[in-house]
C-alpha cells in the first residue's frame, strides 16, 4: 500500500475509534450530530476538530453552559486516555 493510502487508512481508523469513544459519553441535550475533521495546528501537530452541531443560542443559561462543558470535558478525557495521534479540539456548529 502506498504511503498516502496508508496514512488515509490510519486516519479513517482513528476517526472510527474516536467516534466509538464519543458514543460512550453520556449524550448532550440538544446535540444534533458529531463530525470529525482532521487538521494540523499552527505548529504542524496533528489535531482533530470535533464538530458538535447544536441549535443556535445567543443567551445560553448557566445550566446549558455547564452541560456543554461537562460533555466536552468527559469526551476530552476519554479521547486523551485512548492515546490517539490527533489531539482533540471541540468546535460548535450552530444550525437551526
Amino acid at each position: 500500500m502506498a504511503y498516502g493510502a496508508r496514512r488515509e487508512a490510519a486516519a479513517e481508523a482513528e476517526r472510527a475509534k474516536a467516534l466509538q469513544i464519543l458514543e460512550t459519553v453520556p449524550k448532550l441535550r440538544d446535540l444534533k450530530s458529531i463530525e470529525i475533521e482532521f487538521d494540523h495546528d499552527e505548529t504542524g501537530d496533528p489535531i482533530m476538530w470535533i464538530w458538535l452541531t447544536m441549535p443556535p443560542e445567543r443567551h445560553p443559561t448557566q445550566q446549558q453552559i455547564d452541560e456543554l462543558g461537562a460533555y466536552q470535558d468527559e469526551a476530552f478525557r476519554r479521547l486523551i486516555d485512548a492515546d490517539l495521534e490527533h489531539w482533540p479540539h471541540f468546535r460548535i456548529r450552530e444550525v437551526a
Partner: peptide, 25 residues
C-alpha cells in the same frame, strides 16, 4: 493546549462563527 488552538481560530479564522456557550465555558 485547548485555548491555544481556540485562540488561533479566534484571531485568524475570520469565517469561524463562535458559539456563546462554548466561549463562555
Amino acid at each position: 493546549v485547548q485555548l491555544q488552538a481556540q485562540r488561533q481560530l479566534a484571531d485568524y479564522d475570520t469565517l469561524e462563527s463562535l458559539a456563546v456557550s462554548k466561549i463562555a465555558y
